[in-house]
Design a protein around this nucleic acid. Structure first.
Lengths: 404, 404
DNA sequence: AATGTTTAATTTGACTAGTAAATTAAAAAC
DNA sequence: GTTTTTAATTTACTAGTCAAATTAAACATT
């Protein structure tokens, strides 16, 4: 009896144009025959849709290389790819000491980057608008781009963001709550603007131009100041109710445990955050060398490497707590892939084999069901690239909707 | 600027018939005009689709009541509902000491129920097939139904099930691993069979005929022998990679914590499961009255109520651990609704206000973002009803696919 | 009782997205 | 130069959907 599953039958049948476009995006360069196979559309449909996309200037044909190769008979395939020149977007990552700007073309290729430093860590809304406007001008000048050439803007910031509504519900960098930042920015710059929690945007980038290209269900974990979690389900970012993302950093790993910056006890962050390790080191090792937390962390890690057992014990526990947090994500989600994404990977104790092995030990899934773990070391513009990729997503939808 | 979100634009556009049918299912009795509003289809389309469904015998018209009511001018609406008589399905829940059978009509109304006890707790595949075949015959006889009148079968069992493939990867009741149970049953009974993890099936039931009718993102937590978790995202059961569901019972709530039946340490189940509490009670209170775990649990709870501080402390800690597990789900998922579903609600310490309040305290989401918590006390046939509802889902898809 | 008003449902005619099958295109192989 | 092979396109048709017009069935007003 050849059965159909209750779900799986009617879904996945998005829109033909979207289907074709994203197939090209993920597999470029790719010929029409293959697009037909990937999307399960007929060659006829692929021809007509790609013709539309070509006239709209969203994709372009590229010369295929294997002409003249023996054994390759038949009409040669014509490869298609996204036309990078179609649009340029800007992605902005707002952190507590700077705003990072990245310009991407429509293919997702980086054109330019710029960091706009800040003296302040928190802003009221007008101050933030000024800061972003100034930074945007500077970034454009630095990149040698005209403001009129930019088609869209993506902004990622820490905190709780309702991406659907474009509202920042709460952010450590913004004093006021519930601010309609998307609208504000769209009005100011007169281009489509998309905002989201920063961890979600890293997940977007991993999905489209990173290690999650071919995965449908995966999670991206970022460790910066906090521990971030981006969830991709069925190829789409999962944002939970009201578009507010997941909070891995404040999941509880110990009842009545260590005090966290959020005021609660036992949060994962209170065990794996820099400040948490330095707090422990301060108790048992006396003051560490170094003028700032970064340098002090280096000192702590160096001490551990040299054989200091107290330092080792501090780091080891943090690693095990991190494993536990990861294992819980695995147990709840059963993702096919976990991407640990960050810029300080080389010196981070959190990404060592020991931590990954512990995670596997703590997860109940057995053997072949255990998710693959990939470690992705981006440069420090990762976050703004994620924001720009998010903007590309939005621009694509607008562009495809325009074709009729 | 009136923007569209990157996603949200092209999805939700399932199949017209599916859309209409499930609108009727969720809102019955409902008139065509309202179906058009709910589904965003035009009245014309609703008319033609409902006509098809009527001739196929899947739905039926019902007399509308408000005829003759003042102020209600215009052509009276004709309500539609699922035609219960269209199909009968059986749902089976397999546990370690019995198999529970429920017969539901196509509307989801229960027709009959039957419990088939068992002497053994684990089976090899042939034994299980015999046990299920015998039980099915007995259940049919008990209900006065012909086997030929049954259109589909749903089976829920504990363990890890690949629902898509119909394979039981691992189950505490089945000795062999990786058994194609769906195929086996379908061959034996010659009707479509659908199998899944039991907690998932409770989520299915909550979605279609329970408290999750109007929610798109929610989780169902069941406490029986183990702690189960069913996840509904965008109105569909989320099963993770390879269709294996979530494991809340074995998320870790304590590093190097209490020993769990699964062999690991610090699992939630090792703190909130019956056996965990009795283990603690045995240590500090001596042997409890009662011939079996159920009775001993009653004795423990009674002792706590009477003021025994040791008993209170045991129960309190279990409650707090449960809160922590729930809070982690909230932090990771941000569901709009949590349904605590079970049969022993009245005497369960896990569903008290104190536990819910602790959960809210541990979850980082603030105020209006906190999910609603509903407690659903089903009768002991809850599980098999879930299985039957799952079968209805499958039968609907098959029936709708047949219309052409 | 006749006519108007209101709301629900249906019919009609048109358009869109998609397909299967036939056809054309462009290369290598013989 | 002809055949074979593979890719892409064209053609003719179907299913699904909708806007607009029409019909249906009630109450309200005179």
């Amino acid at each position: 009896m050849n059965q159909l599953m209750p779900s799986q039958l009617h879904d996945a049948r998005s829109n033909g144009r979207t289907l074709v476009f994203s197939a090209i995006r993920r597999n470029a360069p790719v010929a029409r025959v293959d697009i037909a196979k990937i999307t399960n559309l007929s060659p006829a449909t692929v021809t007509s849709i790609t013709a539309e996309l070509l006239t709209a200037g969203l994709i372009e044909e590229v010369a295929v290389e294997n002409s003249g190769v023996a054994g390759k008979r038949g009409r040669p395939r014509v490869d298609l790819k996204i036309r990078g020149a179609a649009h340029i977007v800007v992605g902005i990552k707002l952190s507590d000491n700077s705003a990072t700007y990245s310009f991407l073309d429509f293919e997702g290729k980086k054109i330019a980057g710029y960091v706009h430093p800040s003296a302040q860590e928190t802003y009221c809304l007008p101050e933030l608008m000024t800061f972003l406007t100034d930074g945007y001008s500077a970034a454009l000048t630095d990149a040698g781009l005209e403001e009129s050439s930019i088609s869209g803007m993506g902004l990622g910031l820490p905190g709780v963001v309702d991406a659907e509504a474009g509202i920042v519900l709460w952010s450590p960098v913004l004093i006021e709550k519930n601010q309609p930042l998307q609208q504000k920015l769209a009005d100011t710059f007169s281009i489509p603007v998309f905002i989201d929690n920063d961890a979600n945007l890293v997940a977007v980038a991993e999905k489209h131009i990173g290690l999650g290209k071919n995965a449908q269900n995966f999670v991206v974990i970022t460790v910066e100041q906090g521990v971030g979690l981006g969830i991709v389900i069925n190829g789409k970012i999962y944002r939970g109710t009201k578009g507010c993302g997941a909070e891995l950093g404040h999941t509880k790993v110990q009842l009545d445990g260590a005090l966290c910056r959020c005021g609660q006890r036992g949060c994962l962050e209170a065990y794996v955050g820099d400040y948490a390790l330095l707090r422990e080191a301060g108790t048992a090792m006396g003051p560490l060398e170094g003028a700032n937390p970064q340098e002090q962390m280096q000192a702590l890690l160096a001490a551990a490497k040299k054989g200091n057992t107290v330092a080792q014990s501090i780091i080891r526990r943090a690693g095990r707590m991190f494993s536990m947090g990861l294992a819980n994500v695995v147990n709840i989600f059963a993702p096919e892939l976990i991407i640990l994404s960050g810029e300080r990977l080389q010196d981070s104790f959190l990404y060592g084999d020991e931590v990954i092995n512990d995670m596997k030990k703590y997860a109940v899934q057995s053997g072949d069901l255990m998710p693959e773990v990939k470690i992705h070391s981006w440069d420090n513009q990762m976050w703004s690239i994620g924001a720009a990729t998010f903007a590309i997503d939005g621009i694509i939808d607008i562009a495809l909707a325009k074709i009729r």
